Simulated scan of single mutants.
Amino acid sequence: MDGLDVSILGPAFIAGLLVLITHVPLGQEVLKRGIIFIDLAIAQIAGLGVIAASRLGFETHGWEVQIIAIGSALLGAWGLSLLEKHQAKIQEALIGIFFILAATGSILLLADNPHGGEQLKALLVGQILWLTWAQLMPLTLITGLIALLWFLFQHNRRIVFYLVFAVAVTSSVQLVGVYLVFASLIIPALGSRGIRKSLIVGYGIGALGYGLGLILSSVLDLPSGAVIVWMIAIIALLPGFFIKYTIKGTLPFSQ
């Protein structure tokens, strides 16, 4: 229980809530569009931009790296928007190709780096427990801007979807990692699908998953990102299976 340090868990939990503010509604939109792996692809493309910028000698958290990462994600989002328009039937397969190219590109760029394994792990799993209050300020500003754009254009979201998605994923992947970005986008949206007030339910699933995940990972001394992913999944999916097999209802995400 000595691991429950509020000065460490506090910024991590707030970071999770900030990520959820934008990722839950975006995840619901992703499910509606049927392009489940777009977030993984764009997150990996943004990560490739970060790694490429680092190889060019820029400071990891410098503004140059952020510009390159966002630029990479926007370019990837623009390409994926063209796929939706011109190659809708094979869009999901092409998104998968985008992801694997960006992932293997990152491996190639880090091949001769003695710390490449650690850098790649940080990109995938994230380092949420190491976040400080100061690091949350840029994420807070970006989250507010994204949320404003998203709800202002709620009747014509096609215009802003890819732009907002690229910026949201880029800002969060560098803090919490690719795995948590995917979990925050898809699992709460899936667990709340078909339920009244699905957005509120999705936020609740995500917040509870982050909170319990951080506590368990601290108590059990396990990687926080991985534990949070598992907790979000358990909270989102187990009630549906329980209802299906004990009350003979339907899964909340099968509608």
Rank of each mutant, 00 (worst) to 15 (best):
L124N: 01
T132W: 06
K85I: 14
A166R: 01
T140E: 05
K89Q: 14
G96D: 05
I95N: 00
V164S: 09
S172F: 11
L124E: 00
A102Y: 08
P114D: 03
T170M: 09
A111I: 13
W133T: 02
L148W: 13
A168V: 10
L101N: 01
I90Y: 12
L129W: 08
A111D: 08
G96N: 06
A102T: 01
I100K: 04
V125E: 02
T104Y: 10
A111N: 08
Q119D: 10
F99G: 01
A122G: 13
Q119V: 09
G177R: 00
Q154A: 15
F99W: 15
I142D: 03
Y162D: 00
L152T: 12
V167Y: 07
V176D: 01
L123N: 00
H86M: 10
G144A: 09
I142K: 01
S172L: 08
R157P: 12
T140F: 13
L139V: 09
V176P: 07
L108V: 11
L145P: 06
A102C: 12
W130I: 07
L152F: 14
N113P: 11
V125L: 04
P114M: 02
I146M: 06
A93K: 10
Q127M: 08
G126T: 02
H115I: 08
V176C: 05
Q174W: 10
I128W: 04
T170E: 06
L101A: 06
Q135M: 08
W133Q: 06
G117R: 03
P114E: 03
G105E: 03
Y162Q: 03
L108D: 06
L131K: 02
P138D: 01
K121D: 13
T143A: 13
G144T: 06
A122S: 13
L123P: 05
G126C: 03
S172A: 13
W133E: 02
A166E: 05
S106H: 04
V164M: 11
F161Y: 15
L131H: 03
H115N: 14
L145Y: 07
F99M: 05
F161A: 02
T132R: 04
Q119I: 09
F165N: 01
I159F: 13
L175N: 00
Q174T: 03
G126E: 00
A168M: 07
T132I: 03
L175D: 00
K85H: 14
L163G: 12
A102M: 06
T143C: 11
K121E: 14
A168E: 02
E84N: 10
N113M: 11
K85T: 13
I95C: 07
L101V: 12
L152W: 12
R157A: 10
S106K: 10
I100M: 12
W150E: 00
L109D: 01
